[in-house]
Design a protein around this nucleic acid. Sequence first.
DNA 1: GTGAGTTTGTTCTCGCGTTCACAAACTCTT
DNA 2: AAGAGTTTGTGAACGCGAGAACAAACTCAC
Lengths: 245, 245
Amino acid sequence: MTSTRSTRDGAVDQGVPGSIPSKAADRGIPEATVARLPVYLRALVTLTDQGIATCSSENLATAAGVNSAKLRKDLSYLGSYGTRGVGYDVEYLRYQIAREIGVTQDWPVVIVGIGNLGHALANYAGFSSRGFRVVALLDSDPARVGKELAGLQISGSAALEDLVREHDVAIGVIATPAAAAQEVCDRLVASGVTSILNFAPAVLSVPDGVDVRKVDLSIELQILAYHEQRKALAFGSAARLGDTG
Amino acid sequence: MTSTRSTRDGAVDQGVPGSIPSKAADRGIPEATVARLPVYLRALVTLTDQGIATCSSENLATAAGVNSAKLRKDLSYLGSYGTRGVGYDVEYLRYQIAREIGVTQDWPVVIVGIGNLGHALANYAGFSSRGFRVVALLDSDPARVGKELAGLQISGSAALEDLVREHDVAIGVIATPAAAAQEVCDRLVASGVTSILNFAPAVLSVPDGVDVRKVDLSIELQILAYHEQRKALAFGSAARLGDTG
DNA sequence: GTGAGTTTGTTCTCGCGTTCACAAACTCTT
DNA sequence: AAGAGTTTGTGAACGCGAGAACAAACTCAC
Ligand SMILES: NC(=O)c1ccc[n+]([C@@H]2O[C@H](COP(=O)([O-])OP(=O)(O)OC[C@H]3O[C@@H](n4cnc5c(N)ncnc54)[C@H](O)[C@@H]3O)[C@@H](O)[C@H]2O)c1
Ligand SMILES: NC(=O)c1ccc[n+]([C@@H]2O[C@H](COP(=O)([O-])OP(=O)(O)OC[C@H]3O[C@@H](n4cnc5c(N)ncnc54)[C@H](O)[C@@H]3O)[C@@H](O)[C@H]2O)c1
């Protein structure tokens, strides 16, 4: 009973018969690298917008906010797309990374829980330009159902299964209160969703083969608070809020 | 000129004269552990709500979605707050972690950029219950300035410096478009902010001693997309969207 | 009080990720 | 064409974090 392999990981080492064409290097890009590829992609888009056609690893690393050695090593997992003595063709590399990540076409996405956060997500324009298309909005509150938002009508949560299957959705976003998150998650998974982005402050249990990533604003702030406190302590003066009593 | 040490890190090894009272162990909690403490805190609050007064590392680890050995090792960095053969007192441990993170009092926070996302953040109730209090909302759009939101009036961005100093704000949240993020960041830092949570898809440059954490929805989705694509490829059939053409 | 059972705190080992450093490969000038 | 200057791709060293395993410390029953 190892099961219930929850948050973060992305192992994805299902048995795999024996397909995958040529490069063996094509398998197993380190997780840390995968997490940075989108950053490189974003930096390359910015460079393209600035009319820059070629860049060195140093240039790109600066734009992405990382070390150039790390960048080169990361890119080497994809193949040899640079030219020694010259650098990288921005447009070509951009396409290669987009292809590797899998965002050369749009992925259909559903958002469940159209409250404060769900509204913001639904209205977010950055989706479509980065490989995703919101195909359905779901909420359990009858007062919200039927309202239009970002060109879509909000559906009742009873329609979840049908909508996921109809649009062949693989990726679901949960923006409900924490108490509803696990139930919503279970229904998404049962309908065929195999990747979940969770904004609710709750730990989700999912079967093997389903990836969960979480975004938790409070956690990020608390990490900052920890370091902030240490800075305050380091300077001795209990100026900001140190006086406990 | 190493400077411009950007995103993530949280080294915080300023010189430090020679204060810090007793425990030497009090210094240098591993960053990976710091990132998990808020998760444990959340799990303990949930247990408290369920009326549970004592728990084993196994219980708590399950609630937090981690391995029990990892949990125990993490907690050992804070001290010995458990009892062998018994477990942990939920309330006591909760307080110790909250104290270690620095959220026994509220930190004042400003939010800059009150658009789609800024509105959701301002309305978010989870802030106050987790050690933070939003003290100011800022936007450069005259049409938004003066509007009331979550009990606060939105201020024009000219007021940034004054508000940060007035409330002695250490933590700032950036929810502006990417193009404005660096400028807003610079102004926050110049006013005394030393921790920034950035929602804009942009790399921020900050001086040493300032911590930046970023939350990027698109990156999270793209990481999911990568694994999703691999799952699709692993099953051979190019069912979902594989047919490139 | 003693022994059986339970659970923590810690040590040890292993693997991953980061970084350095350099050979290989390319361009450009003369 | 050859040498000087660049920049990539990668081998090797190093440090951190994850997890297994176990001794120390506690409770409870008798
Ligand atoms: N608003 C923020 O800035 C913010 C920040 C961090 C985390 N979060 C988290 O994100 C989640 C959503 O936050 P919010 O502020 O939008 O809350 P909200 O209460 O405004 O919205 C939640 C929505 O989910 C719907 N819902 C409830 N149960 C449902 C179900 N079973 N199926 C479908 N829909 C359901 C509700 O009707 C409501 O519309 C919460 O878990 C919150 O903790 C929010
Ligand atoms: N909405 C989302 O779900 C979402 C998701 C991920 C990332 N983001 C990012 O978060 C940021 C905000 O997104 P949004 O959807 O709220 O955008 P938005 O356009 O709705 O809001 C941006 C707000 O920032 C204000 N602003 C612009 N320049 C400013 C300045 N210099 N000082 C102060 N205020 C300024 C604008 O007036 C506007 O009100 C963007 O960078 C976006 O890419 C948003």
